[in-house]
């Protein structure tokens, strides 16, 4: 399946280039195809959002880039190039050396992701000292400086606090400070604002944007929140059942989406400018089990336009094909038909 259609927008110069990534897990119940042929790329200074429902493989993708999968039961294939260096076949030690330094991660729940028994400062210092041969005092200075940079008040005092003494928003700031300790060039944020309340969410997103401009780093943003996507992302991958359904710029995805699944996601978002009488439109059904992904299009059982494909959707997996410059869609519906449906039926609902 590594035909040309599976690898969109591959510029040889891309800072991060993921090609046909597959991450399968052997479990007692069968082979879980968590990521099944995913390709995308991110440039320095740009943000890519990966969106999709729970269980679509977003988090596994991000952990896969960092090499944080259980080597005992995970089978990984494909290629990940970070600044030209291939990671999938690289030695675990080589990937570990990059982890936390060249690429780092911000996790979803900062309370459970920070060690409860160590101070915030200690944890940041540790992240810095693994990759930099510096003294304890230097690392501490660095930790305080980082905490100040992410907007923690009185950082020279708070550096000795434990995670449970921080508020949720401050913990996420501390988490960001930790991930920035070695000036990473790739920052992966897995649902960075999900555990936070709305005002704090906005602050964290602003902070990430500021930091991105400052360090010119590439960001991968894993989220199911399309509001966050609109705020922060340049490009978007819409994931479903471990695959990309649609991939394009943020304006492609928001203003001329072509995949019925993307339409469904957009229609299920609350919008203040919508009439109150209109109800949110959830996508009917549930994502397929990743152990028994149906043959053909993984989305066909939930697709409202399934009947228009004449049975092809049940046997043949749609390839991710370019429908406009840099805009890729994996759908059996003919391009004209998709655009007509969006224009006539869907756009009015959004």
């Amino acid at each position: 399946m590594t035909d040309i259609h599976e690898r969109p927008a591959l510029s040889p110069t891309a800072f991060l280039d993921v090609r046909d990534l597959r991450i399968h897990f052997a479990t007692d119940d069968g082979l879980v195809r968590a990521v099944d042929g995913l390709s995308f790329s991110v440039e320095r200074g740009k943000s890519l959002a990966i969106v999709g429902e729970s269980g679509s493989g977003k988090s596994v993708t991000s952990l896969g880039i960092l090499g944080l999968y259980n080597k005992r039961n995970a089978r990984v294939s494909g290629q990940i190039f970070l600044d030209g260096q291939e990671l999938v076949d690289a030695s675990p030690d080589a990937v570990r050396a990059l982890r936390g330094q060249k690429m780092s991660m911000i996790f979803q729940d900062p309370l459970s992701s920070l060690h409860p028994y160590y101070t915030i400062g200690w944890q940041i210092e540790e992240a810095y000292r693994v990759h930099n041969n510096v003294s304890k005092a230097e690392a501490r200075t660095r930790a305080i400086e980082l905490l100040r940079r992410v907007g923690i008040p009185q950082p020279d005092k708070r550096v000795d606090d434990y995670p449970h003494q921080f508020s949720g928003g401050m913990r996420q700031r501390a988490m960001i400070a930790m991930s920035l300790s070695c000036n990473p060039e790739l920052l992966i944020a897995d649902e960075p604002t999900t555990a936070l309340d709305v005002t704090v969410q906005a602050q964290i997103l602003d902070l990430m944007q500021d930091l991105q401009q400052e360090y010119n780093s590439a960001i991968i943003l894993i989220t199911h929140d399309l509001g966050v996507v609109a705020e922060l992302a340049d490009d978007v991958v819409v994931m479903y059942a471990g695959r990309a359904m649609e991939y394009g710029t943020v304006s492609d995805i928001f203003y001329s989406p072509e995949h019925p699944y993307t339409w469904g996601l957009l229609a299920s978002v609350t919008r203040l400018d919508r009439e109150r009488s209109e109800r949110l439109q959830p996508i009917p059904g549930n994502p397929p089990s990743l152990i028994n992904v149906p043959p053909g299009c993984p989305f066909h059982r939930r697709c409202r336009y399934e009947a228009l494909n004449g049975g092809k959707q049940r046997v043949e997996r749609p390839a991710l094909e370019e429908s406009g410059p840099g805009h890729y869609v994996a759908c059996h519906l003919p391009v004209e038909e998709r655009r007509r449906i969006f224009r006539d039926e869907v756009a009015t609902l959004l």
Binding site: L68, R96, G100, M105, F107, S113, H115, E126, A127, V130
Partner: peptide, 21 residues
């Protein structure tokens, strides 16, 4: 636990992840 994943994401050696974390 999530914080063990964090420790690994920092690039710590597995032995340090086990003993210190």
């Amino acid at each position: 636990e999530d914080y063990i994943r964090t420790a690994r994401a920092k690039g710590l050696s597995e032995s340090r992840v086990i003993t210190r974390h």
